[in-house]
């Protein structure tokens, strides 16, 4: 038996020369493992970049209009419940998410809970992101962690009572949060399933295009049926294939053009927050993903719009 084998069997510690091969092996393996992990994180971040665009993270977490730093938060989101200021999601360890573990990040997107255990408000669309799968969530985290940290403190939300009471959020979640991830529908094609994932999970289209009740919960029976303008806010058109009030008369080419550059079939060009969604999100998607969105939307049950009617 060699000196290391004897030591492992309870014998004397081996002399240093006998350990040299092991030490040499370790000296080679440890950096190799670190390099593999770094490569794996780089690959994750690369995949995460696409998810970051598809999930529209940039728009809410960057105060672009006021020259705010990328992903450092602070953009005012005005809603009927008050004004939300999305937080800093750069990897800054104090003001951002630099100290968040993988589990923390998954919990935030899946359950709407911050790393400190307090509940998030659903202005952060975790009711949609909960449908993402773990691999995609961690790819997204890898991308965020590869961005420039910004030491900018978060601005507190300015919400009307009782909507600013975080203590109520667990009850709200019981009513409205349907924890994911999204199940694949085996009766539908891969394209349809991809479209469902893009629309419902990543793109969180329902957050604007589905009516809400007075507590801010989405009405599942009116999914993507559009909303009228209220309180000076923006209206959102019906995305279901109703021929008169929805997208029923739109061809695939019509929707692809809208998603790529915001041009509607009647020659109008989208404005407001949808123009931003086109710039930051839908124009960044692959053609295959834009086609998947069309396939999914076209399969929905047609609903009559309560909001504005898309052009024929």
């Amino acid at each position: 038996m060699n000196p290391i084998g004897r030591f492992l069997s309870g014998g004397r510690p081996p002399a240093l020369p006998a350990l040299l091969p092991v030490l040499l092996l370790l000296a080679l393996l440890v950096p190799a493992a670190a390099a593999l992990r770094a490569q794996s994180q780089a690959e994750r971040a690369l995949r995460g970049q696409y998810l970051f665009d598809a999930a529209g993270c940039f728009g809410c977490h960057t105060d672009e209009v006021h020259g705010g730093q990328r992903l450092a938060g602070g953009r005012a989101l005005e809603t009927p419940f008050g004004t939300f200021y999305p937080p800093n999601i750069t990897p800054d360890p104090i003001y951002g998410i630099g100290n968040w573990s993988d589990a923390d990040f998954i919990r935030a997107l899946r359950h709407g809970v911050r790393a400190d255990g307090s509940p998030l408000f659903p202005a952060f669309p975790y009711t949609s992101y909960t449908l993402m799968d773990d691999g995609d969530i961690l790819d997204l985290k890898a991308y965020l962690m590869a961005q420039k940290p910004v030491a900018q403190p978060n601005r507190p939300h300015e919400l009307k009572d009782p909507f600013g009471w975080r203590v109520l959020m667990p009850a709200w979640n019981l009513m409205y949060l349907h924890v994911g991830p999204l199940d694949t529908n085996p009766r539908q094609s891969a394209q349809w399933n991809r479209g469902q994932y893009l629309v419902r999970a990543l793109g969180h289209c329902g957050e604007c295009h589905t009516p809400r009740d007075w507590l801010g919960g989405l009405d599942p029976h009116r999914a993507l049926a559009g909303i009228p303008a209220a309180d000076g806010g923006e209206a959102a058109p019906n995305l279901t294939p109703d021929p008169d009030t929805g997208l029923g008369r739109w061809s695939e080419a019509d929707l692809l053009l809208l998603l790529e550059m915001g041009l509607k079939p009647d020659g109008d060009v989208v404005g407001g927050s949808m123009a931003e969604v086109v710039r930051n999100t839908t124009s960044q998607l692959t053609l295959a993903d834009r086609k998947a969105i069309f396939a999914y939307l076209r399969s929905l049950p047609p609903l009559t719009a309560a909001g504005p009617t898309p052009p024929p």
Partner: peptide, 14 residues
């Protein structure tokens, strides 16, 4: 794109 850039900032949706 020139239309869209202006509409994004200055025109209320849709």
């Amino acid at each position: 794109r020139a239309c869209g850039a202006c509409h994004e900032l200055f025109r209320k949706k849709p």
